[in-house]
Simulated assay, not measured.
Amino acid sequence: MSNEATPAAQPSTGTQQAPGNIASFIDHTLLKPEASEAEILKVCAEAAEYRFKSVCVNPVWVKTVKKALKGSGVLTCSVVGFPLGATPTDVKTFEARGAVLDGADEVDMVINIAAARAGDKGALVEDITAVAEAVHASDAILKVIIETALLDDAQKVLACEAAVEAGADFVKTSTGFNGGGATVEDIALMRRTVGPDLGVKASGGVRSLADAQAMIAAGATRIGASSGIAIVKGEQGSSGY
């Protein structure tokens, strides 16, 4: 699925992507609720300079980011049902539709975490499918945040299976807001569950080049991080997301 005209802006999902340029794996992220317009524009300028894959922001900033990134080849990413996932499906769908209409090339949605913990795969599939249909109608990409820190391994597998069944493009570890983030073990489990063709995004706590490389080796094809510059420079980033 393509959502940009130039090859540099093509969204990627599965394991066919090789870790040659670490910047091309990174969703440069600023999701703090207090983020200012100046901070958002700074992140956009950094993403264009370092050639990150996308800039990921809250929905209120999508139009600003899309305009700032025009012509850069960097994608615009937003979040839905974030960070709790505890909104009704029709609300998530409305939010997703608005994000893509505002210019989002990619949408990262949070699942119904309670449904995953209860083992209710049907509810998960229904929730994800509705959002996927709204996102794909605009040729955008859907990533599904399963919030691994709140699930046991069986629940993680269930959530990943639901994402595959619902037609998602990626599964993603974490919001970064609910305790704990990506681990190599979780990435490996998610990759085994979804197979070779779906994207796997590691997010939350990836703050160094070594962290990012470990996630990629375990099967990640995207890295969500607020420390993207430190990662590409081989430095240690600060905490946060």
Results as ranks from 00 to 15, higher is better:
residue 169 D to I: 04
residue 84 L to D: 11
residue 144 V to Y: 06
residue 14 G to C: 06
residue 94 F to I: 04
residue 15 T to S: 14
residue 110 V to W: 06
residue 7 P to F: 11
residue 133 E to P: 05
residue 95 E to C: 04
residue 15 T to L: 14
residue 78 S to K: 15
residue 102 D to C: 09
residue 227 S to A: 15
residue 39 E to N: 03
residue 120 D to P: 03
residue 78 S to H: 15
residue 212 A to D: 04
residue 25 F to A: 06
residue 80 V to Q: 07
residue 73 G to L: 09
residue 81 G to R: 06
residue 46 E to P: 09
residue 78 S to D: 15
residue 50 Y to L: 09
residue 196 P to L: 00
residue 3 N to T: 06
residue 163 A to K: 02
residue 9 A to C: 14
residue 132 A to Y: 02
residue 218 A to C: 13
residue 137 A to I: 02
residue 198 L to S: 01
residue 164 V to D: 01
residue 176 G to R: 12
residue 11 P to R: 04
residue 109 M to C: 10
residue 163 A to R: 02
residue 168 A to F: 00
residue 96 A to Y: 13
residue 156 K to S: 06
residue 225 A to K: 06
residue 94 F to M: 08
residue 46 E to A: 10
residue 124 L to I: 03
residue 222 R to H: 10
residue 166 A to S: 11
residue 82 F to G: 07
residue 164 V to T: 00
residue 155 Q to P: 03
residue 19 P to S: 11
residue 234 G to I: 02
residue 79 V to E: 07
residue 167 G to Y: 01
residue 108 D to V: 05
residue 97 R to D: 12
residue 47 A to D: 12
residue 3 N to D: 11
residue 157 V to T: 08
residue 40 I to D: 10
residue 118 A to P: 04
residue 44 C to M: 13
residue 48 A to W: 03
residue 230 A to T: 04
residue 180 G to W: 09
residue 7 P to S: 12
residue 163 A to P: 04
residue 144 V to K: 04
residue 153 D to G: 01
residue 142 L to Q: 03
residue 174 S to E: 03
residue 102 D to T: 10
residue 22 I to V: 13
residue 39 E to I: 01
residue 212 A to G: 05
residue 149 A to W: 07
residue 112 N to I: 00
residue 183 T to Y: 08
residue 134 A to T: 00
residue 130 A to N: 10
residue 235 E to W: 02
residue 41 L to C: 13
residue 195 G to N: 04
residue 63 K to A: 14
residue 52 F to P: 05
residue 169 D to L: 02
residue 33 P to A: 09
residue 35 A to P: 10
residue 48 A to D: 08
residue 4 E to F: 08
residue 189 L to H: 09
residue 72 S to P: 09
residue 90 D to H: 12
residue 218 A to W: 11
residue 82 F to A: 03
residue 101 L to P: 01
residue 79 V to H: 14
residue 199 G to M: 03
residue 150 L to S: 13
residue 3 N to W: 05
residue 114 A to C: 07
residue 69 L to H: 07
residue 233 K to L: 01
residue 216 I to Y: 14
residue 5 A to Y: 10
residue 27 D to F: 00
residue 152 D to M: 07
residue 30 L to F: 11
residue 161 E to V: 04
residue 152 D to F: 05
residue 212 A to K: 01
residue 108 D to E: 06
residue 163 A to V: 02
residue 38 A to Q: 14
residue 37 E to D: 15
residue 47 A to I: 06
residue 140 A to H: 10
residue 55 V to P: 11
residue 68 A to F: 14
residue 59 P to D: 10
residue 238 S to Y: 13
residue 62 V to C: 12
residue 37 E to I: 12
residue 212 A to M: 07
residue 4 E to G: 15
residue 11 P to I: 01
residue 43 V to L: 09
residue 17 Q to M: 15
residue 42 K to P: 02
residue 227 S to N: 14
residue 137 A to L: 11
residue 23 A to G: 05
residue 68 A to W: 13
residue 202 A to N: 12
residue 169 D to A: 06
residue 167 G to D: 03
residue 151 L to H: 04
residue 164 V to W: 01
residue 11 P to G: 06
residue 67 K to I: 11
residue 17 Q to L: 15
residue 105 D to A: 07
